[in-house]
């Protein structure tokens, strides 16, 4: 009797235990990136750039070369790698504090220069590693340790929709938002990530996939309730879908 393997660890992920909290969706988004690299045969010429935040140790999990960047600077680091070695596939993996707060200048300008890199943007509406502070993507009224009464939009403004903000730029090629709250959306997000890497492989400029994600630990609810909370609270504010494609680009 022959055996059929229907599910296995992607080659682009190392056989190690991740440090992420129970119910955290980082494990899923790591896997989606790894599967995309495997399926496109890119792993051996890929360099990742890890952020500062919960995924700071991403370099311990991916089976490819990596740079650990300082907080927010991953797109600048990726720019340096890609300009030095255009033959490499370069991606950054960044959270919402890293990309949308301290790294706002770097992401906007890397996108606007049309750097031939792929950005995986994990938006879980909170600072995870530092213990649940308000992020630029924290929802109105959402409680965080630095907005204990809930995000007051009079004081902190409204959450930033990064995919839409970057789509306003003429240069970037592919910008999309997926979500990791259900198996169906995970599969759809995987397709977005794979498409982003395909564009880079073809030499098409800047691609970014925002992944709506959960943080049960800092949201203070169970993993299953977190998935529901994302669906009910984040989806209406952060509409899913492809925001910009190279085919639809207008100058």
């Amino acid at each position: 009797m022959s055996e059929l393997t229907v599910f296995k660890r992607p080659e682009a992920l190392l056989p190690v235990t991740m440090h992420y909290c129970p119910g955290c969706t980082h494990g899923i988004s790591h896997r989606l990136v790894a599967e995309a690299l495997d399926e496109l045969g890119l792993r051996e010429r890929t360099v990742g750039v890890a952020p500062v935040g919960c995924s700071v140790l991403a370099y311990d999990y991916f089976n490819c070369d990596f740079h650990e960047a300082s907080h927010g600077r991953a797109p600048a680091v990726a720019t340096g790698i890609k300009r030095a070695r255009p033959d490499l596939i370069v991606f950054t993996y960044q959270g919402d504090g890293d990309l949308a707060s301290i790294g706002m200048a770097e992401i906007v300008h890397a996108a606007n220069r049309g750097e031939k890199i792929t950005v995986i943007f994990v938006n879980n509406a909170i600072y995870g590693m530092t213990g649940g502070q308000m992020a630029p993507t924290t929802m109105p009224g959402q409680v965080a340790t630095t907005c204990p009464l809930g995000r007051d939009t009079n004081l902190a403004g409204f959450p930033i929709r990064m995919a839409e903000l970057l789509s306003a730029l003429v240069t970037p090629a592919f910008i999309a938002r997926g979500s990791l709250h259900s198996p169906l959306e995970v599969v759809k997000t995987k397709a977005l990530i794979k498409r982003a890497f395909q564009y880079q492989r073809e030499g098409t400029c800047f691609s970014l996939v925002e992944c709506l994600s959960t943080c049960p630990t800092n949201w203070g609810i169970t993993p299953t309730d977190s998935l529901k909370w994302l669906e009910e609270n984040m989806l209406p504010y952060y509409p899913l879908g492809i925001k910009k494609t190279p085919e639809g680009k207008e100058a």
Binding site: S70, A76, V77, G80, I81
Partner: peptide
């Protein structure tokens, strides 16, 4: 590359230098 800031420029160095250039 004309960077968006000295902060970015120096981190581009980190990327390029780290990749061996």
């Amino acid at each position: 590359v004309q960077a968006e800031s000295e902060v970015a420029a120096s981190n581009m160095l980190y990327g390029a230098g780290g990749s061996g250039a």
